[in-house]
């Protein structure tokens, strides 16, 4: 059996108790996406300000368990200031960390340089608790909706 410490790392509890980038941004100009986990009732809204090159600000609001809330907090820290391509790369790395492929299906482990991950590495233990993976991915899947939307806009501008 996995110990609780594998799941509830200190960094996770810290981000749960002291959430970063919590709140909302004015829409528009911000982009907003909402996510729900029908299984447990968790809800999240992600707000992104994008200046055409980088994510200049990101906020999240909602309710959920410690894994869901801390994952949202860690994610906003990880992608703030990044380009869309860089944000996609971060999403990909996060999914690998949870042993998921890009579609979110279970996949074989891929080697990851944990040192480059920073605090995000704390979420690695979640992969050992299958019932909690949906908690950890909620914020990321919701953020992906905005990334997809921004990608479409970029494609449209290049046409």
């Amino acid at each position: 059996m996995q110990g609780l410490e594998d799941l509830y790392r200190e960094i996770i509890l810290d981000h749960y108790k002291n959430p970063r980038n919590s709140g909302t941004l004015e829409v528009p100009p911000a982009h907003q996406a909402d996510g729900y986990n029908p299984l447990c009732g968790d809800e999240i809204s992600i707000y992104v300000n994008y200046d055409g090159e980088r994510i200049t600000d990101i906020k999240n609001s909602g309710q959920g368990c410690s894994i869901s809330r801390s994952s949202a907090s860690l994610m906003t820290n990880a992608v703030k200031g990044k380009t869309i391509a860089e944000a996609r790369e971060t999403i990909k790395t996060f999914k690998r960390l949870l042993l998921l492929d890009e579609e979110g299906e279970k996949s074989e482990p891929v080697e990851i340089d944990l040192r480059k991950l920073g605090e995000l590495a704390a979420l690695q233990g979640v992969s050992k608790f299958p019932a909690r993976i949906k908690c950890a991915t909620l914020a990321w899947n919701t953020f992906t909706q905005i990334v997809d939307e921004l990608d479409l806009q970029i494609d449209g501008a290049n046409d």
Binding site: L7, C40, G41, C65, S66
Partner: peptide, 28 residues
């Protein structure tokens, strides 16, 4: 403490409880 986290720690003590909206969202 969120109910999901409660259920997780309880599980470590072999105490099985349900956490969630219990298929009754209007009541929740």
């Amino acid at each position: 403490v969120h109910p999901h986290d409660v259920a997780q720690v309880l599980d470590q003590n072999l105490v099985n409880v349900r956490a969630g909206h219990h298929c009754a969202k209007p009541l929740m």
